[in-house]
Each structure stands twice: as C-alpha cells, then as structure tokens.
Amino acid sequence: MSAGPAPLRVTARRVHLWLGLTIGALFAFAGLTGSALVFYPEIDAALNPALRAVPGDARPPSWQAVVDTLHRDHPTRTGAWRIEVTEAGGAIPARYYKPRETAGRAFAPLLVWIDPVAMRTIRTGFWGDTVVTWLYDLHYRLLLEEPGGIAMGIAGLVMLLLIVSGIWAWWPRPGGWWRALRFKRDAAPIRRLYDWHKLNGLLGLVLLLVVTATGAMLDLPDQTRAVITLALPITTPPRPTVAAGQGAVPVDRLVAIAQARFPDGALAWIETPTGATGTVRINLSRPGEPSRRFPRTNVWLDPHDGRIVAVRDGLDGSGGDTVMNWLHPLHGGEAFGLTGRVLAFVAGLLPAILFYTGLRRWLRRRSQSVRASSRTACDAPG
C-alpha cells in the first residue's frame, strides 16, 4: 500500500477528521451497545430473579411436556412456537412470533420462559420490553424499525470509510515504519494522544473491520443478498407444507428422527406447526457450523406421521449461503466460542476509545490554534 501523493494524504486526513467528528459518536455508541449485547443472554438471565432461581443444569422430562406447557399456559396462541434448547440447561426460552398485541411491529415476538422442573411459565414479555431486547433494537435499528436499520447500515458503510481513511492518513513512507509504530512517551500531550489513537486503531484494525462490515451487512440484508448473488448463488430455504391430518407424533420422537438424519447434530431449536398444514422444524447444530444458537441444519417433519418432508444441510450450502451463515456469528464473535465473544466485546470498546482520543486531540489543537491567532492579533501593529 503506497502512502500516495501528499495531496491525497492531506485529503485522507481531512476526510478522517470530519468523519470522526460527525459519525464518530454514533460509531462509539454502536460499539458500546454491541459490546453489551455480546453477552446478552447471560446478562438477561442475571437481571431476572425468576430465571436465576432455576437450577442451571435443569432439564425437562420431555420436549413434548414443554410444548404441552406452552399450549396449556397460553391456550389462545395457536400459531407456531419456537423453543430454544440451551446447551447448559436451565430455564427454557420460547418465542411466539406472531402475537396479536404487536402485529404492527416488524419484529416483536412474545418471549416466554418455562421452568423445566415445575413445568410452568415463569416469565413473559414482548421483544423490546426487556432491557436487553430494547438495547438490541437500539443497537440494531435505533428503535426506528426498518428505516432505522437502513440508516444504521448506511452509517456502517461510512464507518468503514472512516477506518480506511485513518489507515491511509497514517500509512508511513518508506523507511518510516519504526517511527510510525513507536509510542513517544516523552512527547508533548497532544502527540501522546495521537499515539494512543493510532496504536489502538492499529491493534484493533482487523476486529474493527470485521464487526463494522458484518454489522452493515446485517443491517442491509436485502442489499447484501443482492450484492452477494452477483458473484455467488444463495439458496432459498424450503417452506414445506403437509396435508391436514389426525393425531400427532410426540415431539421427542420427531427430534429423534431428525437426529438420526444428522447423527452429529446437537438439538438447538424446536418449532411447532404454524397451522393444520404446517410442519415441525428441528434445528440441529453440527460441528463446523459457525453458530451454535442459530444453526442452518434443519429438518422439516410431518407432525402427523413423522415423515421427513424437507432437509437443509448447514454444511452443504452454496458459496453465498456460507457468506450469509457467517455474518451474525462473526459479528457477535460466536463463531470462535468464548474467545471470539471476548474479542467482539473488545472490538465494541475500540470506537469509543478512538473517538475520545481523537476528539481530545482535535480540541487541544483547536485551542492551540485559537491561542496562536490571539497572540498574532495582539502582536500586530495597531
């Protein structure tokens, strides 16, 4: 990478400065809220006494019992329930995606938690009403539904320009690498601020690029898919239906059939039928998939006879599928386990550090410039 002619470097510095002063605060805000959301299931559980009271390793007697509990405690909700199977155990989260109470919102499912020992509902709330889901909407869409998501996606692209312009403005000339990378602890405060700014940016560069790019792509899903399909195909997932019938195969039997199809798959989600012609969908997490919580290996079954009617192999998708499957796990760090989540947490702190050091340096330089102008005016002959 060449530093480029001096005028281009000056332009890059000006672009970086004014983007930092204008969108830098939003970058810092998005980073800080994103850091909190890296561990949002754990934070949510810690904030709720009812969830903390459930033994962390508790398991239900059967998954059919969980489905029966949801139907018993919420008899008017006859649509699909999506039950999360957490890796460790404890209270069982479930979502009802189409509650009538939030029909006017783009995404606001009913959230329910089941005590797997007492087999009863211990907590309910709509998406956006809890602290962490409100924070999620704030981070993702600024509480503005789809227009907010588009705005944040565009802002994410501008943030990428902010990062690139900073690297371009800093890039050392031949022979100047040691000077450019060294922290000058004996320098003036304004120089030390610059060194803190550049070194934090350089150390976290890869993390910043990954979380910013994936965040913009997640905020602009339609546009992202359209761009990816220009080079790589993306598979449309099946939406199977079955004939209405009598009787129902127990959910645990359906889970066993799905796991027999993918023996290496760990149960992640169970989705009950949407209506009389709906299927049961079993989501399985297989080794090699980037997300344990939201895997792409799915088995759709006829709830009346247990027949498999459709399958999606999360490890056998197209190139476009692979890109799409990695976006969310990369953004939140889940793709690399606890280490990845910690790195994503750190990445979220970096924009605030960069904004603070950059703003302080700009204010100091501005103050020095004002004082210099004042002295020049006072020294001028009257």
Rank of each mutant, 00 (worst) to 15 (best):
E87R: 15
L138E: 01
P7E: 00
T78E: 09
A310E: 06
T78I: 11
A103F: 02
I114K: 03
R185E: 00
G275I: 02
T235D: 07
L354V: 07
W177D: 01
Q246V: 14
M217Q: 03
D222Q: 14
R360K: 15
G89C: 06
M324Q: 13
E84T: 14
V158I: 15
G314T: 04
W196E: 01
L138M: 13
A3S: 14
R375A: 11
P287F: 01
T339C: 02
A28S: 08
L330H: 06
A45V: 12
R239V: 12
P329M: 08
T212E: 00
D379E: 12
R375I: 11
T78C: 04
A103W: 03
A88H: 14
M217I: 05
L220N: 07
L205P: 05
S35V: 01
L21M: 13
R364P: 03
L327K: 08
L199K: 11
T241V: 14
Y136F: 15
Y140D: 00
W18N: 06
P49S: 00
L21W: 06
D115E: 06
N325M: 08
A187L: 05
A12K: 07
L208C: 09
A103P: 03
D73M: 07
Y136P: 03
R253T: 15
P237F: 10
A180W: 10
R365C: 02
Q368A: 15
F336C: 06
P250T: 12
S367V: 10
V132A: 01
L202P: 09
G204R: 04
D186R: 15
D137N: 12
T214A: 01
G245K: 12
V309N: 04
V15W: 12
W269T: 04
R286E: 00
T235W: 03
H139M: 04
L315T: 04
E146N: 14
L354Q: 04
I43Y: 01
P351A: 10
F345I: 09
C378N: 13
S285R: 09
E334T: 12
L193M: 12
V211S: 02
L142P: 10
R141M: 08
A216G: 04
A268D: 02
L157P: 11
T76P: 08
P172M: 08
G153Q: 07
A231K: 09
P329N: 09
P238A: 15
E145N: 15
G278Y: 05
T357M: 05
A53Y: 02
V249A: 12
Q259L: 06
T130M: 06
A53T: 03
H197W: 09
L32I: 13
I190Y: 09
L110Q: 04
R371E: 08
